[in-house]
């Protein structure tokens, strides 16, 4: 009787999870299949499930036609550079800030932390108009810096908020003991605290990187021919005569592979970061 019930639970769980995974991954897999089809195979009324895959779409993507004004490779590098610098900058600004704000414990530092939380809620669209005008006036349109600064502003509050929940979990006695043992303040932080913050650092780096990697609105508003990123390039697959579906599919799949790798590597830390903010905050 009990075994039967257990078996039922086991089966039920697996059926539910399978259905959820099909729903979650189905659209992505279907885009992946479209990416390795020829155009006529993709545009078939009854979907073709079995076919010999072609990698022409990917080759076309990376080598580009000679008429391609916006080569994918260039957009890929732009995205990579902008997202990497944004991540580095956000951590360099966010980590010391989070550390000091947690350890100072004054009324003022609590006030700043609540402003950080407030800024985290701001939707990027409220900055489109002022950024557009200010960036044009300063002559920064279509440069890396015109995206790196806004992206840093958008993600630094996330870094501070996430890191402060992780730092809060560490007792201050750790540093005090290190100071007694003859560490300087800096080496106490680097040798004692920093290693313990690894999960938080991994989580917030991935969040920051992906925020910049995925951002579309500001990139669309602030870049033209030189500094445009991959999301803008994807939108460019909508042509005058309709959408180049196979090219778009190849472009989308290429751009989400790094995301997939990061989520698989850091998923555990990301969930921990998200839930320590929500469950305890």
């Amino acid at each position: 009787m009990k075994n039967k019930k257990k078996l039922f639970h086991w089966l039920f769980f697996r059926i539910i999870i399978t259905i959820v995974l099909i729903i979650i991954l189905g659209p992505i897999i279907w885009m992946g299949l479209t990416a390795i089809k020829t155009e006529s195979q993709a545009l078939s009324e009854d979907p073709i499930w079995f076919f010999s895959p072609t990698f022409d779409n990917f080759i076309q993507l990376w080598t580009g036609g000679e008429y391609d004004q916006q080569p994918y490779l260039n957009r890929f590098l732009n995205s990579l550079i902008i997202a990497s610098i944004t991540t580095l900058l956000s951590l360099c600004i966010g980590l010391p800030a989070a550390y000091s704000l947690v350890r100072i414990r004054s009324r003022q530092s609590k006030y700043i932390l609540s402003i950080v939380l407030l800024f985290r809620m701001f939707p990027p669209v409220i900055f489109v108009i002022p950024y557009f005008i200010l960036v044009s006036r300063m002559g920064f349109v279509d440069t890396y810096i015109s995206l790196i600064l806004p992206y840093t502003a958008l993600s630094v509050s996330l870094v501070v908020w996430m890191m402060q929940t992780f730092i809060n979990q560490l007792p201050i006695e750790l540093e005090e003991a290190a100071l007694v043992d003859g560490c300087t303040r800096l080496s106490a932080f680097i040798r004692v605290i920093f290693p313990l913050l690894r999960p938080g650092l991994i989580a917030s780096s991935i969040f920051t990187f992906l925020t910049a990697w995925n951002e579309f609105l500001l990139a669309l508003a602030l870049t033209r021919r030189n500094a445009a990123t991959l999301p803008v390039k994807l939108y460019g697959f909508i042509g005058e005569h309709g959408i180049d579906w196979t090219g778009l599919a190849a472009g989308s799949i290429t751009m989400i592979i790094p995301i997939f790798i990061l989520v698989i590597i850091g998923g555990r830390h990301m969930i921990q970061g998200l839930s320590s903010g929500a469950v305890k905050g």
């Binding site: 990697w213 995925n214 697959f237 959408i243 998923g267 555990r268």
Partner: peptide, 25 residues
């Protein structure tokens, strides 16, 4: 953990790419 990461994947998918995936569907 892998299951959790897979569930999280769509949330971190580039929104514009996710949009096009569904427009295609």
């Amino acid at each position: 953990n892998i299951l959790e990461a897979l569930l999280l994947f769509p949330a971190f998918l580039t929104p514009i790419a996710a949009g096009f995936m569904w427009r295609w569907l």
